[in-house]
């Protein structure tokens, strides 16, 4: 079968694959996805906390994967397992610390401006889903913490009606939520959040237009 190379955008969109590639490139141009320049105003330590939260999440996932490879009781009976559990715990603590600073930073920057509301919303939902993920982690430790936290938390969750379907006293159910469903949800949310940041760009400073002009400063320059 002879093939005629597609030329131009119309040719690209004649197949489903070509349509998907063209739309993806339109939505997320490579120079937006992996930029080598940033607006000049991206020059504060507060911007570091986003990538710190992301990297802490990577450490959380890697340490969690090691525990998953060895099974849920490994960390109870092995000193190496206990150390990996310690890595998991401290990376979670760091993840939340970085995420909360990032969240407050974005709040005080009103980072939802410029049609970036969805970026804020995916970030906030990621924070809430992370709380659920960490909570289920405490439930599946199989120690005193798990016993106490599950028997206390059940009352709040049952009071909302959710406990009838999501039983915090059921180790098997909580283990699967902790190692599969919730990490998957958090990962997908983080990917969405980052793609939104990359496509929309970092929100400009308050009072500055897209050409970099500051409202008050422009008025002062115009004055005789």
């Amino acid at each position: 079968m002879s093939q005629t190379p597609a030329s131009g955008r119309a040719g690209e969109r004649s197949t489903w694959t070509g349509w998907l590639r063209a739309h993806t490139l339109d939505a997320i141009p490579p120079e937006h996805l992996l930029p080598d320049t940033q607006p000049a105003y991206v020059a504060s330590w507060i911007y570091v906390f986003g990538v710190l939260a992301l990297t802490a999440f990577v450490v959380v996932c890697v340490s969690g994967l090691v525990i998953a490879l060895k099974g849920p009781t490994w960390w109870q009976v092995s000193s190496r397992g206990h150390f990996v559990n310690s890595l998991h715990l401290w990376s979670v603590e760091l993840f939340f610390f970085f995420m909360v600073v990032h969240l407050w930073g974005k709040f005080f920057m009103a980072a939802w401006r410029g049609r970036r509301a969805l970026t804020w919303m995916t970030g906030a939902v990621t924070f809430l889903a992370s709380i659920g993920t960490a909570f289920t982690g405490y439930l599946v430790q199989q120690n005193f913490d798990s016993q106490w936290i599950s028997t206390q938390a059940k009352d709040g969750i049952n009071a909302t009606g959710i406990g009838a379907f999501w039983n915090v006293l059921d180790f098997g159910q909580m283990l699967l939520w902790h190692v599969a469903l919730l990490p998957l949800a958090v990962s997908v949310l983080i990917v969405l959040h980052i793609l939104l940041v990359r496509t929309s760009g970092v929100v400009p400073p308050i009072g500055v237009d897209l050409d970099g002009r500051v409202e008050g400063a422009a008025a002062k320059e115009a004055a005789p």
């Binding site: 992996l34 930029p35 080598d36 320049t37 940033q38 607006p39 000049a40 105003y41 991206v42 020059a43 401006r113 410029g114 049609r115 970036r116 760009g201 929100v203 400009p204 500055v208 237009d209 897209l210 050409d211 970099g212 002009r213």
Partner: peptide
Amino acid sequence: DPAAGDWRGPRRPYDLV
């Protein structure tokens, strides 16, 4: 919305990776 759209002001070098 004055914050909607691509930034056309000054930029600085940045290495994301």
